[in-house]
Every structure is written in C-alpha cells, then in structure tokens.
Computed example of a mutant assay.
Amino acid sequence: MSKTRILTVIVVVAAVVVWLLSGILTDSPSEAVVSLAEAKEIRDAEESAETGVLVRAKRSTAVQQDDTILLRGRIVDRNQATVPARTGGQVIARYVEIGDSVATGDVLCELDPEDRQALVDVAKDALDLAEKEFKSVTTLTERGFEQELDTARKKAQLSASKQALLAAEIELENTKITAPIDGIVDMVHANLGDYVSLGSPCATILVLDPVYAQGFVAEEHIVSLTLGSSATVTLPNGESRDGELSFISKKAEENSRTFRVEIELSNEDFSISSGMSANIEIVVDSTLAHQVPTSVALLDQDGSLGVKLVASNDVVEFRRVSIVREDPDGIWVSGLPERATIITVGQGLVVEGERVTVDFE
C-alpha cells in the first residue's frame, strides 16, 4: 500500500473518532448535575413557600396587672399624748419604761396620796350626816313641824356634801396618773422621788396603730388618685404591708408643687416605727397584660412600639403595645389579645403578612 493511501485511511478514522466523541460530550454529565441542583433548589423554594420561615414562639395568656405610681416616703404617726399630772405630789412609783406597751387606764405614775384618803373619809361622814338630817327634816315638814324652807336648806346641804365627797375621791384618784390611750411609751418625764405639780408631764405615749405611710405625688398624677385606692408599702427590711389611700391633700406644697398623700397601715403588733423610710406603690388602674422578654419589642415604621404575633393561619401580625411595667424577667405589655402566640426568636427576619412555621417554646 502506498504512503498516500495509508495517510488517507488515518484521516478518515480520526474524523470518525472525533464525530463519535462529539456526540458523547454534547450529552455531558455536567449538564445532568446542573439540572439536579436546579431541581432541588426549585423543590426547596416550593416547600419554603408552603411552610414559611421557621420562628420560635410562645403561647401567652394575659393576666391582670396594676398600673401604679411609685413614691419614696416615710412612716408617720397621727397621734401622741403627753400625759400630765392632774394634781401635785411626790412620785412614789413609776410603772412604765420607754418602749412599754400600754392600754387605756394603765397606771403610769403614782403620787403620794398624803392626807387625801382622810379627806375622803371626812367627806363620807359629812354626807352621811347630811342624808340623815335631810330625811329627818323631810319627815317633820310632812307632819307640819318644820317649814319647807328648812327642808330646802337641808337638801342643799346634802347636795353640797355629795359634791364634796366626789371632789375628794377625784383628788385621791388623781394621784394615779393613767394612760388616756393605747400606745407605746416614747418618753418618761417623772422619776421616782420627783415632786410634780399640776400639769407636769409623767410620760409621752405614741399611738402606733394605725400608722401612715406619707409621700408626695407630682401634680400631673394627682388627678388619677382616689381615696380608698389599694397601695403597698415596702419597709426598709423588705417587708411589705397592704393598705389603702386614706388622705389626699387639696393643697400643693409651696416649693415642690407636689401633693401630700397618706396610706393607712394596720400595726397591731407595733412592729412599724414612726419615722421609718418607706417605698409606696399606689394602684391607679388595672389592665390585662402579657409578660414578654425585652428583646421581643420592636418599633414599626412610625416609631410605635409593638410585638409580632402568629395569627391562627400562621401569618405574621404586628400589634402595637404599651408598657405597663418592668420587672427582672422582662416587660409587661397591654394591647394584645387575651390569648396570643408571641414570636420570641426570629421576629426580625419576618414581616407582617408573611407565612411562618412555628417552633413552640
């Protein structure tokens, strides 16, 4: 075979091989791989459209929350009595010390009665004589042996004798200085052996049941207060006492333009002392509210505060809210339905009207 024929055969074979390879490369595996990736992406998009973005949410039920005014104040007492001597004399006994509890009628101090008992005895004898004389003259007058003027004179003497005995008994009783009210002895003024005159103080008694938590309210809040409103007073030791708003001043303080208010507190055990500092929380309104984490609250385009909910059809809904109060666990907000599904994670990734898939807490 000549060299020319051999070269021709080689060219023809090469052309056939190239043609065969071109068919295989045209239906390449790479095109098949791309088609599978596109199909998966399409399926994911379809599933996402059906199920929505995954968010975390919690089911919440509103509870009653109080809208309150917070004040810094102090405990005050409304009444105290400095008990005076009602006669003069030397103190022969003192039955109380500072801090003692006393009841009405308890003896605080006792003075030397001196001759007061003798004066009572004399007055009793005089009264006995006057009664006998009056009885005798009355009998004689009825029989016509005495004039009515004599009867009137004896009647006056009898009345005077009764008054004299009463005065002597009171004078003797006044040697015992008694408590006019229930309370706590805040101060003693008379010591054993002291001579006290009429009006000299024996002791000072504080009335500590009830006591009053006193604070001052800014003028913009005073219109929202009403007598009888519930209030809670927290004492320095952390103890809380419930009471009612018992006084609202009708006149503002000259310098601060604030109004004095008082909350009456029961203090039967005298455990609350006058002058203590107190934190006062007065209820001005009550509303249904949900507790949510602070991070849940968002601002809409108008700058209004709100949270995102999941409606019954799994669609995102934005609801404007108002903060009722704050505590260490978050904020309490009003403006939501009584029962709500609140988005707690992913709220920034979804918009109102978007369908979502919910993972409940």
Rank of each mutant, 00 (worst) to 15 (best):
L111N: 05
S295E: 15
R320G: 08
W332G: 07
G243M: 06
T138R: 14
T68M: 09
V137G: 07
V120K: 04
L119C: 03
E244D: 14
F360V: 12
V120W: 01
L235D: 00
L288R: 12
S101C: 01
V315I: 11
V76W: 03
V33T: 14
Y195M: 12
L192M: 11
I92K: 14
S322M: 05
D242K: 06
D128K: 14
Y95E: 10
V310P: 09
D300Y: 08
E146S: 12
T104N: 04
A14D: 08
G99S: 09
N191E: 14
A81N: 11
D327G: 07
E173A: 09
R72D: 12
V137P: 03
T51A: 08
Q117F: 13
S22H: 10
R143C: 00
E38C: 02
R78K: 11
A289M: 08
F145A: 13
E46T: 10
V188C: 08
S159E: 15
L108R: 03
V333L: 10
E220L: 06
I331Y: 06
A15N: 10
K132C: 00
Y195E: 14
T4F: 09
N313Q: 12
S256F: 06
R86A: 04
S28A: 09
V9P: 01
G330H: 04
S28L: 02
S136L: 13
I282L: 10
R116H: 02
D66W: 00
A311T: 07
S249K: 01
E41L: 15
N174F: 07
L149G: 13
P210F: 00
Q214R: 11
G228N: 03
G243Q: 05
C109L: 14
E133G: 00
E317D: 13
E254P: 09
V358G: 05
L245D: 00
A126R: 13
Q163S: 15
T61R: 15
L158V: 01
L108E: 01
V307P: 02
G52P: 08
H290Q: 02
F318L: 13
T341S: 09
P337C: 00
G23C: 00
T344R: 01
V13H: 00
P113W: 00
S277Q: 09
V310C: 08
D327C: 07
D27S: 13
A297N: 03
